[in-house]
Amino acid sequence: MSTAVVSIGRFFRYGNFAIGIALTGLVGLTALVSFFWTPHSAILIDVAAKFRPMSAQHWFGTDHFGRDVFSMIMVGARNSIAVGVVAVSASVTFGTALGLLASARRGWIEELLMRMSDLAFAFPAVLTAIMITALWGPGAINAILAIAIFNVPVFARVTRGAANAIWAREYILAARAAGKGGLRITVEHVLPNILNVLIVQATIQFALAILAEAGLSYLGLGAQPPYPSWGRMLRDAQSYLFEVPEQAIYPGVAIAIAVLGLNLLGDGLRDAFDPRLVRKR
């Protein structure tokens, strides 16, 4: 009985992880393939061929400009992943550096950085992104910057919290006694020990970045036409919701798959890294 419960629990733990990997892999693979091959052009407008239903030629039909929706979804994956990767990498870099700095120095630097991130947290993330793109003008680059900026305090916070716990450890005391400086301790001891936390956080922020990008594109602030983006496809489909409702489903499902996949992956990674769970097993 209890063994069965444990194995079901394990299945969910690892099953979810596997599903997460599969879904994320699917999105990544689609994006990769789109560089070499799409069934049709994702950009070419042919108004005469608009709103073709699903067929062997057009797997997901065509949109209001006669473009092949399947091809657009494929190229759109590229856009989502690119925005997610670039934005999250940038915010990990800056956020982690700031968090490590705060943790290594403590005192007023820590106070200042954490109060600044409190300030950034006071605004809802997507609102910040809308403000930034409204200020700098819409476009893929500015969307990336906006998403990166609102993610920086997230990583700064997480890093500082985890790093503070490490700094209290005895081996840090030993390293200090051995005469190592703050920078060296940070790089050699603190960073490697908080990496798992960062990886989990990055995966989850990746999912949020994809959602944010879709939201910005939906509002017309993300990638500009003719480059396809899931958010804009959703917005375009909305005007034809009564006539061709399926057009809204494809990009919607694509976004859902990407976000769900990354969330499950993040959960799975956290379970794998979490020492308390390891002890239970």
């Binding site: 070419l44 407008i45 108004v47 400009f65 036409p225 003719p226």
Partner: peptide
Amino acid sequence: PQYARKGGEIIAQQLERVGIQAKLEP
């Protein structure tokens, strides 16, 4: 308006066929 935003996408592509690269700016 839709006639401008959507029309811009179509016109940009028509201009591209004669060698004019149109950048869209909403």
